[in-house]
């Protein structure tokens, strides 16, 4: 027996509340972040990821208070992303109690940030978040582009090549979200996940589209993901984290039970 595949509930936070949208729009309230974090911890979550989806910069400090409060009560790794633009932003989140910080749009506009942050704080705490979308047409060789600004802007970058570049700059992990799947509940984009995971030697967290427990199993078995991230299936009580882990174990995936 060896390293367990991780299940990571994701909490999208705005104005101090956990919300969830479909394809990055149409938000629905899911509750209090601290309460939800404690619940997932009790259910056996391997880590927690918080994405600050606040639009305005003057509300950024809210996430710091939330992370401080969660880190006082929950003793599993915490990743925080959303709006991280500078080494100073990374430092503030780590000081608030985050163990890892996710960098998304800023990695594209300023790749040097990934290098600077990982050399300052260590690769282990720098997660590069990639929002990818299929741009190849039916019948063409598969191609995915990196999108930024919450999925609105096509950067023209090949997502697989981009992941490799982020690894070379010092990313410790890739959080890979299939944008066309996010919130749809039809499952991960397995071709994308496998292409990225096989191309890099750092762990890849699959995200976007989980609607049932088979999707989690597929993400690991067919997508070669090292960890799977999901939001809606846990937020609205369809499944507990423990049920998800038991189901994965039943499907011969090593998990921490």
């Amino acid at each position: 027996m060896g390293l367990a595949k991780r299940i990571i509930p994701c909490l999208d936070v705005t104005a101090g509340r956990v919300v969830k949208g479909v394809n990055f729009v149409g938000l629905r309230d899911a509750g209090d972040p601290i309460e939800i974090a404690r619940r997932y911890d009790e259910q056996g979550a391997d880590e927690l990821t918080f994405l600050d989806i606040t639009a305005s910069s003057d509300e950024r400090d809210i996430i710091l208070h939330i992370i401080e409060e969660v880190a006082n009560q929950v003793f599993i790794p915490l990743t925080v992303g959303g709006g991280v633009r500078s080494v100073e932003d990374v430092r503030r989140l780590l000081n608030a109690g985050a163990d890892k910080v996710g960098i998304n749009t800023a990695a594209v506009t300023n790749p040097q940030l990934v290098a600077d942050a990982s050399s300052r704080f260590g690769s282990q705490c720098i997660v590069v978040a990639i929002d990818a979308k299929q741009v190849s047409a039916e019948g063409e060789p598969l191609l995915w582009h990196v999108f930024t600004h919450g999925g609105r802007k096509d950067t023209g970058l090949d997502a697989v090549a981009w992941a490799k570049k982020m690894e070379s700059l010092g990313a410790g992990e890739i959080l890979l979200t299939s944008m066309d799947r996010d919130g749809t509940k039809i499952g991960f984009n397995l071709d994308l996940t496998r292409a990225v995971s096989d191309a890099v030697s750092i762990p890849v967290i699959a995200s976007g589209g989980v609607g049932n427990l088979d999707h989690l199993v597929d993400g690991v078995k067919k997508g070669h993901a090292d960890a799977v991230l999901a939001a809606s299936i846990f937020h609205y009580g369809e499944f507990t984290v423990r049920q998800a882990k038991e189901y994965m174990a039943k499907n011969q995936i090593e998990v921490r039970l």
């Binding site: 027996m1 060896g2 390293l3 367990a4 595949k5 991780r6 391997d46 690769s123 282990q124 410790g172 992990e173 096989d198 890099v200 030697s201 750092i202 762990p203 890849v204 070669h224 090292d226 960890a227 921490r256």
Partner: peptide, 13 residues
């Protein structure tokens, strides 16, 4: 035969 990633991240025995 599955590739193991480095860093070694996660819960191990």
């Amino acid at each position: 035969g599955q590739k193991l990633k480095v860093p070694h991240i996660g819960w191990n025995e």
